[in-house]
Design a protein around this nucleic acid. Structure first.
Lengths: 276, 276
DNA sequence: CTTTTTTCGTAACGTATCGTACGTTTTTAT
DNA sequence: ATAAAAACGTACGATACGTTACGAAAAAAG
């Protein structure tokens, strides 16, 4: 069975009439972008008529042109997510572990390719205001990341709280949140209603929301001032939250640097308390 | 001047109305494929109307949607032609963020270069024995990782517990641990005495210890049956636990696969309980 | 709180695109 | 060489798409 459309074409190219063969050749030569354009563009580039293009893709087994384009886009999406596995070996021999690690690495890389320094700076500026409190909350699987971030932020500045337990507990804490407070939310599929409800209530109180989510964007994005989307797809039964974890670490590091002068004193003071 | 469309968006995202900002976020999160689909698809994914999408791309400076798509395709074509230049960013003035991300990626890569599939398999075999319970515990900053792992393991098998709170609480739980139980410990510098004491007591009771630590090896390694060392050095005030996080995810994934038949039933049952 | 401005979505429009029927041309078999 | 079959292109219809106009809603200014 042909795994990619390109291979599928190579297999059947010999058994094609001249016109369709030209279509196949131009598609391979400009793979896959020419296939994402219109039939007219494709046919003109190949020097054949539009119906020939349609007969060509029909011969490949697609029912219509849209289905063909969707297949190309899916393939492209997979390629963009892991360009390494494409350049290196097709890796049937490599272990599952190595493959998953590669996918995770690509997720992290891809995530930060679209996260601008500007965005990080803005969020850090928001979090570095000592006046306003920071509250962190997460979903079923992302709550540990919220905890991780809270554990660090607590050290570099005051007025940091992690919202643990059930939704009802969170709601009680809303009373203590002022208009200038910041709520950092971690939320990935499947998005929890409880988080959405809570974020909505917080937004209505004028609280700034920083959302760290997956590439499909939690509905909380509607109420969020800042949104960072991490890639989560890996060849596993679970989604990977590693990219979100790195986002948290980056924010921790940058905030620590922003509050360097004061945080240094805080850390020293804390260590004195622990040691004594 | 912005060289890529993604940067262009990042620059102007702040000055956009809420609806267009949502369009920008979904485009960045699904970059660039969503932009190659139809306006209707794009608008539906972003949760806004079609005109909002068009106003959004007009604000970016494009005269119509076709021009916008052409620009995306040109960018994509350049990327596909030289996949190597993509991994190494062309920007000469790389920010601290990118450097830290690179260091984190190298840490993860380096970590798994020295972790054998055999080791993973052995640990998974240990954890997949339904007879013995799994207990997870972590230090000050690594406890969230223990929680993360526990949250997943609880779903794929029974008899999983996360040791929360103070050391005294842990000790009380020791009574419930049998000789065949497994204790998964996360511990990085600065190694906590409390964890060491607890691990030692557990080891004396014949409990198998799986240790996930940093490259300098926690002293708990002495009592551990399996030790996985992750790299943690990054140009930041803090160490990075990302490699440990990925280790946890790998173990979660492999264990899920090992228990596939039974875990599938468990997951289905759980979702029924949640839905009902 | 009121007024003004901006922003957003519904609805309608014109166009480009896909898909098909049909006649012409080319190829193949007899 | 002739007939049959396959392939190709032109022309046309239906559909979906991008685009624009307008009124409602929200935000900002006074």
């Amino acid at each position: 069975m042909a795994t990619s459309i390109a291979e599928l074409i190579a297999d059947r190219m010999d058994a094609m009439p001249t016109g369709e063969k030209r279509a196949a050749q131009t598609l391979i030569a400009n793979y896959p972008l020419i296939g994402l354009k219109t039939v007219a563009d494709f046919s003109h580039q190949a020097g054949v008529s539009s119906p020939t293009i349609l007969r060509f893709i029909a011969r490949l087994g697609f029912h219509n042109y849209a289905e063909f384009q969707s297949a190309l886009q899916d393939e492209l999406a997979a390629q963009l997510q892991s360009p390494l596995t494409r350049t290196t070996q097709p890796s049937p021999a490599r272990g599952r572990t190595a493959q998953t690690v590669d996918a995770t690495l690509e997720n992290i890389r891809g995530t930060f390719q679209h996260v601008s320094d500007r965005q990080i700076r803005d969020i850090v500026a928001l979090l570095s205001n000592r006046r306003c409190g920071i509250h962190l909350v997460g979903g079923r699987f992302t709550d540990p990341i919220a905890r991780y971030m809270a554990a660090h932020l607590t050290i570099v500045r005051s007025n940091v709280s992690h919202l643990a337990g059930q939704e009802s507990n969170w709601r009680d804490r809303l009373i203590d949140m002022g208009k200038r407070d910041v709520l950092v939310v971690f939320d990935i599929r499947r998005y929890q209603d409880s988080l959405l409800r809570f974020a909505e209530m917080a937004a209505k109180r004028g609280i700034h929301i920083v959302l760290v989510t997956d590439q499909w964007l939690s509905p909380i994005a509607r109420f969020s001032r800042h949104v960072i989307a991490g890639r989560t797809a890996v060849p596993s039964a679970w989604d990977s939250s590693a990219a979100l974890f790195v986002i948290a670490e980056i924010l921790i590091g940058e905030l620590t640097r922003a509050l360097e002068t004061e945080s240094r004193g805080r850390i020293r003071e804390m260590e004195a308390l622990r040691g004594g």
